[in-house]
Design a protein around this nucleic acid. Sequence first.
DNA 1: TCCTTTATATCACTTTATGATATATCTAAA
DNA 2: TTTAGATATATCATAAAGTGATATAAAGGA
Lengths: 105, 105
Amino acid sequence: MKQIEQLTDSVFYIMAALSNPRHGYAVMALIEETTKGTVNIGPASMYTIIKKLLQQELIYLYDDSDSRRKTYLLTQKGREVLREDIERRKVMIQLAENGLKEEQE
Amino acid sequence: MKQIEQLTDSVFYIMAALSNPRHGYAVMALIEETTKGTVNIGPASMYTIIKKLLQQELIYLYDDSDSRRKTYLLTQKGREVLREDIERRKVMIQLAENGLKEEQE
DNA sequence: TCCTTTATATCACTTTATGATATATCTAAA
DNA sequence: TTTAGATATATCATAAAGTGATATAAAGGA
């Protein structure tokens, strides 16, 4: 039984990218690019996570009129979950920074 | 082959707590408390992660004079890794917030 | 034509996380 | 003083998550 929805890093990156309509390949490229190559999500991770997010209704198939590309977008629920996770992550960073600060005193 | 060291959320929480000397049980309690119960790391996760962090020399056994408690602390390397991961996470949040912002325009 | 890039997808495997359980000590109250 | 609950560490077996390798195919340029 999972408590308050917690996104893993990979899921977070993908959902962040899907706050605008994008297809899987573009999401991979965007993450690679915006993290300057430090984070690399390959196709296996990409498409398994997309499948899971669809099941959970955090994203939906926005457009597949193009035979090759399937474009996805966050649902309203997805946006809320992402926003909550952003807040959780801000607190995480605060905790870590406070810890490192204290230790120097 | 792993690229630039990337911490999972659980590892991040535990390392953040160990920027000051603490024993496992106290780390669990601290995370539970500071996240208001939203994040819960049980003993299985706690002690498997501690074991792994010791192997990687990101933490060390700071004190075990007390027969019951084993106190751990970040190594210098651990501090560096944590600091880097804080930066990565700040960028993550920026990306997500920018995405959500644009979409409203 | 044929090679490269774009694009989606799955399989089998590894890594990571965790519920359940075990064990032992300390502490406060009955 | 015994005993129940909190403190504390630890492991096992399983579940969940992530990924390298590989397959497939269409688009676009040389």
